[in-house]
Amino acid sequence: MKRNWLRAILGGLSFGTMLFVFEACYGTPQDNAGFDVLVQGKVKSKATGQAIKGIKVSAVYSPQFQYTDDQGKFSFYVYTGGTFALKFQDTDSIQNGTYQSKDTTLYNARDTVFVDVALENN
């Protein structure tokens, strides 16, 4: 506790970067800057309620994506400043049925978000 006070005072005196940001020779910079959130969820068919495998779940404005597994599940960290959007796309043509794409915007997400999505058939 005492230590955090000291850190706050020194940080306030503009010594923050000098004191707390460091990296070892053969190491990396610290992960000080990023805000991310773990997005987990499941994609199913609106018509049947069945899980859909192979749906591409993308983080909008980012190169990140993941495909849903056998149980329709996905789980990945997304960079966020509080708000972010996910896109759900059926990119494997007719392999697991054909579904319409869907966009979801999530607000003020912190730590972990659960997103369950039902896609309509084409």
């Binding site: 990296e23 190169p63 990945f76």
Partner: peptide, 17 residues
């Protein structure tokens, strides 16, 4: 490569050298 890059970001990597 690009595939690795995306997979590591998905796993929450926050710094890289």
């Amino acid at each position: 490569d690009e595939q690795k890059h995306i997979a590591l970001l998905n796993a929450g990597m926050g710094a890289l050298t």
